[in-house]
Simulated scan of single mutants.
Amino acid sequence: MKESVSTSDTAAVARRFEGTQSPHVGSFRYLLADDTWEWSDAVAAMHGYVPGTVHPTTALLLHHKHPDDKKKLAELLQAVRTTGEPFSSKHRIIDTAGNVKSVAVIGDRLLDRDGIILGTSGFYLDLSEAIEEDIREGVDVAVSALAGARAVIEQAKGILMVVYAVSAERAFEVLAWRSQETNVKVRALAEQLVAEAAGGSGAQPIARTEFDHLLMTLHDRVPEA
């Protein structure tokens, strides 16, 4: 597979998640030239697979979609495979054990150094509330470790909660995931997100696709320490 470089989001988007990272946020990548998909370990696990044992295809993605969501997802996947354009979707998947899970999938353009579109990269966010208690303790510990930055992080979490209609714990996991993927501190990402959101006050509400792009490229605009 050809090596690719993103100028907007994800030089590291195909990195597999380590055991210490959240199992409820995972990355994916789609390459136009090869018509191939890549999943992080977390995304494979969301679908019920042991990490490293599955090679995702478009047909496999559609196989796991809930029947009521399959038509719109087929159309969305066709657009992604044709143009590599940014997208966002909240839908249901069915894992290998037959469990129905709600997920949000956010994708942005994957570019090479010359700005040529190579495909799409982004993340899955598991919205299943049944697992909320299982992660609460670990997330609380992570938040406590950032006590000095609590105020701005809480503001950033609030923005994510409103935009994606998720819990505070899920919102923090998204911030932590972006921090791990981009090697930028959570506090710095939170400050940038709050600043850019506040900068739009008084104007028309930001479109969902614009916010998705903002989130995926936020690290590019974080001032150097």
Score class of each variant (00 low, 15 high):
E169R: 07
W39D: 02
S144R: 11
N183F: 10
K157V: 14
A59E: 10
W177N: 04
P86V: 14
G148Y: 07
D68L: 03
T96P: 09
P51R: 10
E181S: 03
S89E: 15
E191N: 06
H91C: 11
S6Q: 04
L111H: 03
S88L: 02
A198K: 14
R15D: 11
L73C: 10
T217I: 13
D9H: 08
Q204R: 15
R187C: 10
G202Y: 09
D69H: 14
D112N: 15
L125H: 00
L32I: 14
E137D: 15
A198F: 13
D41G: 01
L31I: 12
E38W: 04
R29E: 09
H219V: 09
K101F: 05
E38F: 05
G19L: 13
H91A: 13
I131L: 14
T217N: 12
S89G: 13
G199Q: 07
V105L: 04
P205Y: 14
A168G: 05
R29W: 04
Q155R: 15
R113I: 09
E133L: 13
D112M: 12
L189V: 08
L215N: 01
Q192W: 05
G84F: 00
D108N: 14
S88T: 04
V143L: 15
T82Q: 08
G138M: 05
I206L: 10
A142K: 03
L60Y: 01
V143C: 14
T36Y: 06
A197S: 11
R136F: 13
T20A: 15
V100G: 05
L77V: 08
V174I: 12
V141D: 15
L62C: 00
S40N: 03
S22G: 01
P51G: 11
L31G: 01
I116E: 11
A104D: 01
R187L: 08
V162D: 15
S179E: 12
R16W: 13
L215F: 06
R113P: 01
F172H: 04
Y30Q: 01
A79G: 10
S4T: 10
Y49C: 02
V163F: 12
E132M: 09
L189C: 07
R208C: 07
G200I: 09
L73W: 00
S40A: 08
E18L: 14
I159Q: 04
S8F: 08
A11F: 13
A74I: 03
L73E: 01
E85I: 03
